[in-house]
């Protein structure tokens, strides 16, 4: 019996719900997974090359997941993130095609393209009033179709400088990890310190209430989708950098992975509730799962099965349950 519980003072108990809400839950699972892997194969797991593998896997997933996080907070969902990343990867390699001088303009162009896709999503959702699921399902196919029209096989070539960003590392840390860290910092800052950040939670939580209180709902929604588009395009650039060529299937399935990590992190798919800390934990956990299959020399076919089990287990324990 602790002293705090006695004497009428209200004991401050930390509940499972608190852990989920703050995003701490997924980090506990992550910690357990790291411990398990350390026990299973300490040398292999902690080898700089393996750590670098895990971190490299987090970059593309993490960038795309940041965008998904924003859209899910707004009460929506972005199913087109994978194909947007694909198109960006394909065009990056195709347009640069080995000419160093083109790198900067092409990358900037890709980010603009991503932003443009976001504007389209935002307007269709906020102004026309179509459900985000439908809008982005349509653009998933449209953008993927555009990518296949451009090329059905891997094509183009990025410059060695760009691929170095993805492939070179300092100790266990790949250069590209800095890009993710920077993006996380920017998104965290935007969420915490701008009016848009505050209003995003309100729009996702109850759009009618947000509107009634003078929140520019349409502007907030468009901004969220634009950021998601730009981040997906950036993820695409790094996909191209990692592969050195542009593939029309580079970002396949990325949209589902981003939804997975956002949900694992305790963010409500209904919008308005969620923590960035949780989503980042989800990114690390999923990356860890994928790379560990290789590390432990399990058959690659097991990856999906393990993913499914992890999602189900984590959801069963941690995903925010409907309040009472």
């Amino acid at each position: 019996m602790s002293a705090a519980v006695a004497a009428g003072t209200r004991p401050r108990r930390i509940s499972l719900a608190d852990l989920t809400r703050t995003g701490a839950a997924v980090w506990i699972v992550l910690l357990a997974a790291v411990l398990a892997l350390t026990v299973a194969d300490a040398g292999g797991f902690w080898a700089p090359a393996n750590i670098a593998n895990v971190l490299t896997a987090t970059v593309v997933l993490g960038l795309a997941a940041l965008g998904q996080h924003l859209v899910v907070l707004s009460g929506g969902i972005d199913l087109s993130i994978g194909s947007a990343a694909t198109l960006s990867a394909l065009l990056t390699a195709l347009l640069i095609n080995g000419y160093p001088i083109r790198t900067a303009p092409v990358v900037i162009g890709m980010l603009l393209l991503g932003g443009l896709i976001g504007v389209l999503h935002g307007l269709l959702v906020a102004r026309v009033g179509l459900p985000p699921f439908i809008v982005t399902l349509a653009t998933l196919y449209l953008i993927q179709g555009a990518a296949f029209t451009i090329s059905t096989t891997p094509t183009g070539r990025v410059t060695s400088a760009l691929s170095a960003v993805a492939l070179e590392r300092i100790g266990p840390v790949p250069y590209s990890f800095a890009v993710l860290v920077l993006a996380v910092a920017v998104v965290a800052f935007v969420l915490a310190r701008t009016a848009f950040g505050r209003q995003l939670y309100a729009v996702g939580g109850d759009p009618a209430a947000a509107r009634a209180n003078g929140v520019p709902v349409a502007r907030v929604l468009v901004t969220a989708y634009v950021l998601a588009g730009v981040l997906a395009a950036l993820a695409g650039v790094l996909l191209a950098a990692r592969a050195t060529v542009g593939s029309p299937t580079a970002g396949l399935g990325l949209e589902l992975s981003t939804i997975t990590v956002v949900v694992l992190g305790g963010t409500s798919l209904l919008g308005g509730r969620g923590s960035l800390v949780g989503t980042l934990g989800g990114v690390l956990l999923l990356s860890l799962v994928s790379s560990s299959v290789t590390l432990l020399q399990l058959p690659a076919t097991l990856t999906d099965l393990i993913r499914g089990v992890v999602i189900l287990a984590a959801a069963a324990i941690f995903v925010t349950r409907a309040r009472r």
Partner: peptide, 26 residues
């Protein structure tokens, strides 16, 4: 009908739509 956002803090609720910013930051 209540328009308080349950998941947001009291302070953010009070300032909702009226966020005071300087140079774009709250």
């Amino acid at each position: 009908e209540l328009t308080v956002l349950p998941a947001m803090s009291v302070g953010d609720n009070v300032m909702l739509g009226q966020e005071r910013t300087s140079r774009g930051l709250i």
